[in-house]
Simulated scan of single mutants.
Amino acid sequence: MPRYVRVRDDVTGHEKDVPEGYWLIGNGLTPVKADRYPPSTVARRAKPRVKKLAGQSAKRRARRPVEPDTATEKE
């Protein structure tokens, strides 16, 4: 039965499970601490990395009203 280890993508920061001995471990994928994510016989759900915007939380962003590009005349 294959065993899966948790790794982090060096470029995107996403975490996912790959089989032990996967050829990209060490070449683009860095193993995550084994005490937090021990090897498993079942692949776990992937964890995407979401970048936070400066000064705003990733969960809640303020919406600003959109202003028209051209001025309109009042009648």
Rank of each mutant, 00 (worst) to 15 (best):
A54T: 11
P48T: 12
R45F: 08
I25T: 00
Y4Q: 03
V42M: 03
G28D: 01
Y4D: 01
A58E: 04
K74L: 13
K59Y: 11
Q56E: 15
V5H: 03
L24K: 14
E67R: 15
G21C: 05
P48F: 08
T12V: 08
A58W: 10
Q56M: 10
V11Q: 12
V50N: 09
K47D: 12
G28N: 04
S57L: 09
E75C: 05
L29R: 00
K16T: 14
P38E: 06
P68C: 03
Y4C: 02
K33L: 13
I25S: 01
T70P: 00
D17A: 03
K47W: 03
E75T: 04
W23V: 12
A58K: 13
R45V: 13
D17L: 02
V66P: 00
Y4R: 04
R36L: 13
V32D: 01
V5F: 02
V42A: 07
A71N: 05
R3A: 08
D10F: 02
H14Y: 07
A54E: 13
D17I: 01
D17V: 00
T41N: 12
K74G: 09
M1R: 09
G21M: 01
T12Y: 06
T70K: 12
K74M: 07
D17W: 14
A71Y: 09
R64H: 11
A71V: 09
Y22T: 01
P48K: 14
P68T: 08
A71T: 06
G26I: 05
V11H: 05
K74D: 09
R45T: 14
K51R: 14
Q56Y: 11
A43W: 02
G28I: 03
L53E: 15
V42S: 09
D9M: 07
R44W: 02
T70V: 14
R8C: 06
V11W: 05
E67A: 15
A62W: 07
A46M: 10
T41H: 12
A58L: 08
P31Q: 08
K74H: 11
G21N: 02
T72E: 13
K16P: 00
A46Y: 02
R44H: 15
E73K: 14
D10P: 00
E75A: 13
E15V: 06
A43I: 07
